[in-house]
Amino acid sequence: MEFFLSIFVGLLFAAGIYLLLHRDFVKLVIGIVIIGNATALFIFVAGRIVRQAGPFIKEDGSVPESFADPVPQALILTALVIGFGIQAFALLLFKKLYDVPKIHQVDDLKK
């Protein structure tokens, strides 16, 4: 599972970087979203994937033998929320670029 997820993370990064290099602003935003998700998945995989049990102490006080690490999940949650903030700001910024100086793609930034 970790093997396939690792390859998937790599593919997501590749797709994200391809979109970031695109000259269209909408695709840039999609690239930001995809790279954000790729980093989140990367942390998830780096924290090892454990199935079946959550990080809870059982009713009789014993600790389960193997359980999913809660820290990467907390990190991902935080990173995703921050990512949403940046994506929202990026969308608004590109909207302003469309409206105010009438810039429609990355190449026009140079003028």
Binding site: L20, L28, I32, I35, G36, A38, T39, A40, F42, I43, V45, A46, G47, R48, V71, P72, L75, A79, I82, I86, F89, A90, L93, F94, K96, L97, V100, P101, I103, L109
Partner: peptide
């Protein structure tokens, strides 16, 4: 300003993504 912000924001975003990957490796 808007043009400058686009460049600054994209580069900062890429930096943040790399930072998170570093965090992931260190935690792993």
């Amino acid at each position: 300003q808007l043009i400058g912000t686009v460049k600054y924001m994209l580069l900062s975003f890429i930096a943040s993504a790399f930072l998170l990957v570093g965090v992931g490796i260190i935690y792993g």
